[in-house]
């Protein structure tokens, strides 16, 4: 009997210790926060220029994807929802890369969306091995650049209300004499910085209709959506894989850099669906200071 009492006390003590140490956080509805982030979506992109330079943080979301990646449409839907939520404070770039983006030798998936070797050179740094995956401002979270799409919203929300270190104005011009497009990117720094800062200018195309593998019946047919509308597709990087250095060593508040590029457009790109995406980043750790987007043509 003594043993039983002793053991019972020990068990009771054990349980008390166990449960008092490790509390649980049971969450009841509502599971989502209400009006947690107030986003100004009134900044307007009109014509072929950004008429009012956005002086708020504009976040770059790079969605690494592929046309034979069955789970990627879920990430595309998430990116679309985030664009509706964050308006012009979010720029999405769909980067087709990896084995799921590789074209098949025959069948429905022969089209090559990839921008080679740029996208592979980029991923040599990010080390994405599972798709879909996203980069938020090319910033490391928990030691990794790679973010599952379920975590995109939270990470964007955590930085979108902060003040940007720079503002970017993008203007696109069409020269009727040469029939060329020119992009002018004006970058103005809001804070003093030291280091190496680079500008990367990309061409992006919306509404490319090509097949896409899909596993989610709520998005479309499975396993293939033959007339899938591919949005935000990276078409080229105008100024090489890692862009152009615009600020080296010491940058003062108000320092401004102007860069112009003549664009080379391929014949199968639809000009009305093209946009220029520009972003400035810290070359030492790749993190993006600010991004901007401007459609190529008047619409």
């Amino acid at each position: 009997m003594k043993n039983i009492i002793k053991i019972s006390k020990l068990l009771l003590l054990t349980l008390v210790i166990a449960f008092s140490f490790f509390a649980c956080s049971k969450i009841d509805e509502p599971y989502k926060k209400q009006q947690s982030v107030i986003i100004d979506t009134t900044g307007v992109l009109t014509g072929n220029t950004i008429t009012d330079t956005i002086d708020k943080r504009v976040v770059l979301l790079e969605d690494y994807t592929g046309h034979t990646c069955v789970n990627c449409p879920k990430a595309h839907v998430k990116a679309h929802e985030l664009l509706q939520k964050y308006g012009n404070q979010l720029v999405v770039l769909a980067v087709h890369q990896g084995t799921f983006a590789a074209p098949a030798s025959s069948g429905d998936y022969t089209y090559d969306f990839r921008v080679l070797p740029t996208v592979d050179e980029w991923n040599a740094v990010w080390s994405i091995t599972g798709y879909p995956a996203g980069l938020i401002n090319r910033t490391k979270y928990n030691g990794s650049f790679v973010n599952a799409y379920g975590s995109w919203d939270g990470k964007i929300a955590s930085i979108v209300t902060t003040s940007p270190e720079a503002i970017i104005n993008v203007k696109n011009y069409y020269n009727t004499t040469t029939s060329n497009y020119t992009t002018r990117v004006n970058t103005k720094f809001n804070i003093a910085l030291t280091g190496n800062y680079k500008l990367c200018v990309c061409i992006m195309e919306d509404s490319i209709i090509k097949p896409q593998k899909n596993s989610d019946p709520s998005i479309g047919s499975t396993p293939d959506i033959i007339d899938y509308v591919h949005m935000h597709v990276l078409r080229s990087v105008v100024n090489s894989t890692w862009g152009t250095t615009i600020g080296n060593a010491s940058i003062k508040i108000g320092d401004t850099f102007n860069n112009s590029y003549t664009l080379t457009l391929k014949s199968d790109w639809k000009k009305d669906n093209l946009s220029i995406v520009a972003f400035v980043y810290d070359a030492s750790d790749y993190h993006v200071l600010q991004a901007a987007l401007a459609p190529l043509n008047n619409k």
Binding site: A23, C24, Y31, G154
Partner: peptide, 21 residues
């Protein structure tokens, strides 16, 4: 057995459990 993990959260979208048991 009882196991619990603690991970802080400042997620602006979801009310997340910081202690999951």
């Amino acid at each position: 057995s009882f196991v619990s993990k603690y991970q802080p959260s400042s997620d602006p979208v979801y009310n997340l459990p910081e202690n999951v048991g």
